[in-house]
Write a protein that binds this DNA or RNA. Structure first.
Length: 437
RNA sequence: GCGAGUGUAGCUCAGUUGGUUAGAGCGUCUGAUUGUGGUCCAGAAGGUCGUGGGUUCAAUCCCCAUCACUCGCCCCA
C-alpha cells in the first residue's frame, strides 16, 4: 500500500509558488502594521486548555479545537486563536510594559471542523492589538490599519465595506429597553448574527420565541424588528441616540471619514460571535458579488487581560486570515505574478564550468541570488527551465565571455541581451529587484 | 455532528441508454545537425475509469458498502 501524498485534511502544502505568495501577503501585512509603530511578537502553538475555557465560549473549546493529552497527562490545545495568548503575555508583564502597547503577530491557528469554502483547519492570521487606550483613538487606529493593509494590496474602497456596531449599545437595547435576562440577551445576540441567512418570517418567529409572554405583550418583537432594519444611526430612536455608546459610535464613524476611509457603514445586526467583545465591533465585507461575505473583523475587548489576576487593560484588536484575504485579492484581480527569489540563472556554454566559478561567486558576494545550470546541459532546455521557474534573467558564460570578461545577460521578459562586466550586471539586477513584481 | 454533490491520464474534463484496443485540451518527454526559451510542426510516454462486493453472458456505466474531495448547515477565532 503506497503512502498518500495528500496533506492532512484542511491543511495546505506550500510549494515554492504558494509559499512565495504567502510571503508576499505577510510582507505587506508587516510593512503596513509596522508603519503604524507596531512590534512583532510570537507565542507557542500549544497552550493549556484552561486558557480558552474562561472567555471564548464552551462549544468552541470542546468541539472545535484540537485537544489532546501530552505525555505528562496535561490537556493541551493547538491554539485556535491568538488573543488569549497575547493577553496572557501582556498580563505576565503587566507592570513593566510601556503603554500604549502596539503588538502584532502572524500565527498559524488550528480549528477542528469540516473544511469549506474559505475556511480550513489550519490558517495564518495577522493579529494586531493595541493595549492601554481607553478612548476611541484605539478603534480609529486599528481600523485605519486594517484599511491601509487592503489598500497596500491595491484594493480600492469600492471593493470592500467596513461595518461597525457597538456591543454596549446593543446591550443597552437588550437590557434596558427590552428588559431581557442574560440568557435571553445571549440567545438573541446569536440570532441577530444569523439574520442575513434566514428568511424574514423565520427570523421574526425565532425572535418572538425568545421573549416571555409578558415581554411579548409590550410589543417588544415589533420594536426590535423595526430597530434592526435601521441602517443609519440618525434613524435610531432619540433615547437610544443619546446613549454614550451610540454617541461614541457616531464619533468614530465621523473620524474614519476624516481619515479618508469613506466605505464605513453602521450595521446594527453586526454582533460577532466572540463573547469577549465589550464595546465597538467591526467587520470588513468583500463587495465582490461572488464572495459577498465577511472577510475579517475585530473590536474592543477590555476584559481579557484582567482574567490573569492583574489590573484590567483596555484593548482593541483585529485578526485577518490568509485564506479569506487571498480569496478577496483573487476575486478582485489583485494577486501579482511574483518573480522568483532567484535573481539570475547562470548557463555555462562549452567546457567552462570551472573557469566560470569566479564570476559566479563574485555575484553572490555582491548580494545576488544566483542559481547555476548543471555543467554540460543543453542551453535551450536550461533557458526554458529558468523561464518556468519565474527567473527573469539568464547569464551566459562561455569562452567568448571569459576572454573579454564581458558576460551575456538576457532578460527573459523583454528578450534583450547585453554584454557587461560582473559589476555592471550586479547593479542592473539590483536595480531591477527594487521595481514592482 | 447533520445534509447534498463529485471521484475517468500529472491537471481540467468528455464518454458509453451495459458490448472488442477508454478520448480531447493543457502539461511532461523526444526531434527539426550541437551558443539562446516563450509561437508553430512531427512524434512518444502516461489510465487495474477512487476502493471492495453484488447483479449480468458481459460493468468505467446499474445496485450496495467504504474511502477521499467539494459545497452547504451548525459554529465562526
Amino acid at each position: 500500500m503506497a503512502l498518500s501524498t495528500q496533506p492532512y485534511k484542511g491543511a495546505r502544502d506550500f510549494y515554492p509558488e504558494d509559499r512565495r505568495l504567502q510571503k508576499y501577503l505577510f510582507s505587506k501585512m508587516r510593512t503596513v502594521t509596522e508603519r503604524f509603530g507596531y512590534e512583532e511578537y510570537d507565542a507557542p502553538i500549544l497552550e493549556p486548555i484552561e486558557l480558552y475555557m474562561a472567555k471564548t465560549g464552551d462549544e468552541i473549546v470542546h468541539e472545535q479545537t484540537y485537544v489532546f493529552q501530552d505525555r505528562g497527562g496535561r490537556t493541551v490545545t493547538l491554539r485556535p486563536e491568538m488573543t488569549p495568548s497575547v493577553s496572557r503575555m501582556v498580563a505576565a508583564k503587566r507592570q513593566e510594559l510601556q503603554y500604549p502597547l502596539r503588538w502584532y503577530s502572524i500565527p498559524n491557528l488550528w480549528r477542528y471542523e469540516r473544511p469549506q469554502h474559505g475556511r480550513l483547519r489550519e490558517h495564518w492570521q495577522l493579529n494586531v492589538d493595541i493595549f492601554g487606550v481607553k478612548d476611541a483613538s484605539a478603534e480609529i487606529e486599528i481600523i485605519q490599519i486594517a484599511d491601509a493593509i487592503l489598500r497596500e494590496f491595491g484594493a480600492t474602497p469600492d471593493m470592500y465595506t467596513i461595518r461597525l456596531n457597538s456591543r454596549k449599545m446593543m446591550d443597552f437595547i437588550m437590557r434596558e429597553d427590552l428588559k431581557l435576562s442574560d440568557v435571553q440577551a445571549h440567545t438573541l445576540s446569536r440570532l441577530i448574527d444569523r439574520r442575513a441567512k434566514m428568511p424574514a418570517d423565520a427570523f421574526a418567529a425565532a425572535v418572538d420565541a425568545i421573549f416571555t409572554p409578558s415581554q411579548r405583550d409590550t410589543g417588544n418583537s415589533d420594536r426590535l424588528l423595526e430597530l434592526l432594519d435601521m441602517t443609519r444611526i440618525e434613524q435610531l430612536p432619540e433615547a437610544l441616540q443619546r446613549q454614550p455608546a451610540t454617541q461614541e459610535l457616531k464619533e468614530l464613524m465621523a473620524t474614519l471619514e476624516q481619515s479618508r476611509i469613506p466605505n464605513v457603514i453602521f450595521d446594527i445586526t453586526l454582533m460577532r460571535g466572540l463573547d469577549y467583545y465589550t464595546d465597538i465591533v467591526f467587520e470588513v465585507y468583500d463587495n465582490h458579488p461572488d464572495n459577498n461575505r465577511s472577510m475579517f473583523g475585530g473590536g474592543r475587548y477590555d476584559g481579557l487581560v484582567g482574567l490573569f489576576g492583574v489590573d484590567p487593560l483596555p484593548t482593541v484588536g483585529f485578526g485577518m486570515g490568509d485564506v479569506t484575504l487571498r480569496t478577496f485579492l483573487e476575486g478582485h484581480g489583485l494577486l501579482p505574478n511574483l518573480r522568483s527569489e532567484t535573481d539570475v540563472y547562470v548557463i555555462t556554454i562549452g567546457q567552462v564550468y570551472q573557469q566560470a566559478q569566479a564570476a559566479i561567486q563574485e555575484m553572490r558576494e555582491l548580494g545576488l541570488n544566483v542559481a547555476v545550470a548543471p555543467a554540460g546541459s543543453k542551453t535551450d532546455k536550461q533557458i526554458k527551465i529558468a523561464h518556468k521557474k519565474g527567473i527573469h534573467y539568464v547569464l551566459f558564460i562561455g569562452q567568448k565571455e571569459l576572454e573579454k570578461q564581458q558576460y551575456t545577460l538576457r532578460n527573459l521578459l523583454t528578450s534583450q541581451e547585453e554584454q557587461h562586466s560582473i559589476a555592471r550586471i550586479v547593479s542592473i539586477i539590483r536595480d531591477y529587484r527594487t521595481t514592482e513584481a
